[in-house]
């Protein structure tokens, strides 16, 4: 559809476009200052605890720790949303730009629409297909926020705000963050080495996401079940790990591996155009622009006098 805004003149040639692409590989839409990084790190720490607590709280002698262990899932259900709220509030401090908010919203909407097409409640692979190129092109902070918001948005659309949601949100945030952490291959921007790297990351992210969500589900699902597969608060980490491995093999591996493969194939086939589209949009949106002082210029003999605020010369200025 025809744009609201005037179309700037198209770039002169394809060669210019390509170098502009690679130059943009380093630009980020949400700058991560030290405090945002700190916030994301701490939130991720809580997130790691929220998923990995079964392997942590092994203790000899039961008693108080056992009582706490059975409470842990519920405690994290309350804490993790709060932590997410805090970290989003901190990231939102750098989000005041309308362009970033609009791009976040639109990409999250696309991801949510993709999910209603191809995903189930626990799966999120179609979302990754959009999330990873966005994290790569637009930076770590944007990737994290986009992951969190896409899952939240799709839950709102389907009406399924369930207890799994905060955990899915932070896991998807990690996927987006990780995509932004991949090494910058400036020379290969848009070409097959970058796509291959993204594809491999996609497969890995899919597997890890599935395993992590299964890990969240494990203590809930196995309380009261037979030992050997159930979470045992009195056992040590190694035993619990073997129990979890049994549970994972029984329930989730059969779904996760094909999904990871599908992820990798999807990114390999369509990741290039998606990445190019997002980069082009970011360039057009000119993130991080602001007025810079231009060269002063004398007015061409204006007989009605100078500007209202008494300036001698009319200064042009430039936004880059």
């Amino acid at each position: 559809m025809t744009s609201l805004l005037p179309r700037p003149a198209p770039p002169r040639s394809q060669a210019v476009q390509r170098t502009a692409d690679s130059a943009d590989a380093g630009r980020t839409a949400i700058r991560l200052r030290w405090r945002s990084t700190a916030a994301v790190t701490l939130a991720s720490l809580v997130g790691v605890l929220a998923f990995g607590w079964p392997f942590l709280s092994g203790v000899r002698g039961g008693g108080e720790a056992v009582a706490h262990a059975s409470d842990a899932p519920w405690v994290f259900l309350l804490i993790l949303p709060l932590v997410l709220v805090v970290v989003l509030a901190e990231l939102a401090d750098g989000l005041l730009d309308a362009k970033t908010v609009a791009m976040l919203g639109v990409l999250a909407g696309c991801g949510a629409a993709l999910r209603t097409f191809g995903g189930d409640v626990t799966g999120a692979s179609p979302v990754f297909f959009l999330l990873m190129p966005a994290g790569r092109a637009l930076g770590r902070g944007f990737g994290f926020t986009l992951g969190v918001l896409t899952l939240f948005g799709s839950a709102l659309i389907t009406g399924g705000v369930g207890p799994w949601l905060p955990f899915q949100m932070i896991a998807a945030g990690w996927v987006g963050f990780g995509a932004g952490c991949l090494p910058r291959l400036r020379r290969f921007a848009g070409r097959w080495p970058e796509i291959a790297m993204l594809s491999a990351y996609g497969a890995l992210a899919g597997l890890v996401y599935g395993a992590v969500m299964d890990l969240w589900f494990w203590p809930f699902q196995t309380t009261g079940l037979a030992p050997g597969i159930a979470y045992d608060p009195a056992a040590d980490a190694a035993t619990n790990l073997s129990h979890f491995a049994a549970f994972y093999l029984a329930t989730s591996l059969g779904f996760d591996v094909p999904r990871a493969v599908a992820n990798a194939v999807l990114v390999a086939v369509a990741g290039g155009p998606v990445l190019a589209a997002i980069r082009r949009a970011a360039r057009r949106a000119a993130f991080g622009s602001g007025p810079a002082r231009g060269i002063p210029r004398t007015p061409t003999g204006d007989p009605t006098g100078s500007a209202a605020d008494g300036e001698e010369r009319v200064r042009p200025w430039t936004c880059r």
């Binding site: 805004l5 005037p6 700037p8 362009k99 000119a286 007025p291 231009g294 200025w317 936004c319």
Partner: peptide, 29 residues
């Protein structure tokens, strides 16, 4: 479209580019 967008400042704050001269709307530059 450029002229219309210049009236409310979208050009050049939003689109980027270089604007010489002044656009004054209701006394605001």
């Amino acid at each position: 479209s450029t002229l219309l967008s210049a009236i409310n400042g979208l050009v050049p704050h939003f689109t980027g580019g270089r604007l010489d001269g002044q656009v004054i709307v209701a006394g605001r530059d």
